[in-house]
Design a protein around this nucleic acid. Sequence first.
DNA 1: TTGTATGCGTTATCAA
DNA 2: TTGATAACGCATACAA
Lengths: 353, 353
Amino acid sequence: MMARPKQRATIERDENKRISIIDVAREAGVSPATVSRVLHNKPIVDPKVRDMVRETVARMNYRPSFAARNLPMGRTGYLALATPRGSQNIFTNPYVFPSLEGIGKVVDESSFHLIIATTPKQISNLLETHAVDGMILIQFQMDDTEVEAIEKSGIPAVVVGAYKQDTRLSVLTPDYPTSVQIAVEHLAKLGHREIGFICGPPNTFKWRSNQIAFGESIQQLGLREVGSLVTPKYTEESGYTAFRSLIEKGTKPPTAFVSTSDNIAIGVINAAQDCHLKVPGDLSVIGYGNIPASRMAQPPLTTVASNLTLMASDAAQLLIEIIETKNYQPRRVKYPVSLITRESTGPPIPGAT
Amino acid sequence: MMARPKQRATIERDENKRISIIDVAREAGVSPATVSRVLHNKPIVDPKVRDMVRETVARMNYRPSFAARNLPMGRTGYLALATPRGSQNIFTNPYVFPSLEGIGKVVDESSFHLIIATTPKQISNLLETHAVDGMILIQFQMDDTEVEAIEKSGIPAVVVGAYKQDTRLSVLTPDYPTSVQIAVEHLAKLGHREIGFICGPPNTFKWRSNQIAFGESIQQLGLREVGSLVTPKYTEESGYTAFRSLIEKGTKPPTAFVSTSDNIAIGVINAAQDCHLKVPGDLSVIGYGNIPASRMAQPPLTTVASNLTLMASDAAQLLIEIIETKNYQPRRVKYPVSLITRESTGPPIPGAT
DNA sequence: TTGTATGCGTTATCAA
DNA sequence: TTGATAACGCATACAA
């Protein structure tokens, strides 16, 4: 009863139908298994047969189906780059492109394709349909509800950036504490005694460790923390507004700010200049991220850089390794950061205004 | 690893194994077919059975496999956004994010997932493995060799931007000729009589139609074309260098430039200012694209805008329609453009320098 | 070294 | 209304 005769015999070729490995096998006069072995360069096949099959494959212009090939192996062959709020204005989110470059290099040389999910819905769809074998997570915040779903989905995932301690995911992080420390040290060396900290929104994973690092650095160098600000977003507008409100409240600003975001730092500089303060004479500002806009700022922004492209390519590599070896041991890697000195920092000039 | 006999029967649940529709069927005491019918809300199923199956699905937290579900339908369920040179510096390629936003909206509401291919290799891999059902093409140039492969692959594809006439692909294009025309008219109205054109690299699809449109506009308004430039890239550096070399050759520049790229225009402005020319007093400049940087430029750039997000979402919608209806009739749609007047254009001031 | 047979997880076509 | 069962296109134990 399983020998149900096929409607179509071999006589007529159906133009609409995809050509399959069976067609190739029949044409070459071998079994599908042999064709498969040739396609995968298995050594246990007769060179003559191999060449003949290869010729047939080429002549018929046969390409295996990606989905069908992965199905028996219990995988999809797709990875995802997941980043909520990803399609926002690029000035507020300049982190995806460098990541894409790093991931692209790895994907190029792998057998995987790359999905991009830039909305919560796309991310949860991916999870629910089992449409990817693993995920790279970028720019997630504590209140992004998808992290919960990802954690308990069991899907392999690698986080680039700060993330919680108690997790089954692997995490590749820039050395945020050191980034704050070298920023503070740079300002101290220039002669600043009163420094403010701008840490961005508190609902981010890096917030707490940065706060602690700043406090410690300040204390170690015998400086005073003055005029620190909290901003609701990592945007220029956020930084601008925060500084303006500081001034409007009549608070005397410090002589320097350390920000954990270039965008915020640029906003602060603009606000300060609009308040007729000279940067860096009256106010020095350090950012974080070394985004393209930081180089273009007036004055060009001193900032702390990490190699996001490298981190992303390492993340992709690690993710593929996890998928292929099924070694789900979470790993944590810390990446070095470096200070890029430009013109937004300098010695404080008392009474310059 | 395939026909490996199961060590354990139904008694103990194998944690490593994905739960399949068969597991659910067995648990619910029905056939897989019935479960499938419930999942697809087929009306021909007994309400009691339906509810019971739904409950079982929920209890077992069962999610159908995306790949297995699409395989019998002869499709993959994935679309691709393809853009060569995509991971370059975001300042030279600010077009992908708005596109991503538009496409994301459509993908969110569809049953498709979105692949992103930012290198030639990723694009050809996609083609060769049949890993996507269709492609959206952005920022392709005439000498991108992949267009040839895409054309003859037969895969459904929609191009956003300029593209050749003789093609089986659908094309959604901003109205480039009008963009040039309104730019020239704006300058004429301000009193400019000698205008230069900067059209970017000649190996792009929009080059020729733009050139023609500029010539016609100039002629119709009785103006003179002076000091037109060709740049090898759509970058700030390109624009900067081109203008500097004009000056260094001793050529007297026109009083205004129309550029087909914001990046180039910004580069020209910087070069002019470095040559001690006032913008817009000595030189007015119009760009194209309305990229974020155009608003931040000093002075803010007058430019021509098109709605890239809308075009991209329309492209995604059209692509899905093509795939689902199998109507491969190529379509062409032209999208309106509008002038955004900022401070980089003004009346020419003779002898201002 | 090669072919056969089975499984991957689902949908669709039957027959019951 | 439901249940077997054949595809979908491929990879791979196992037999030959």
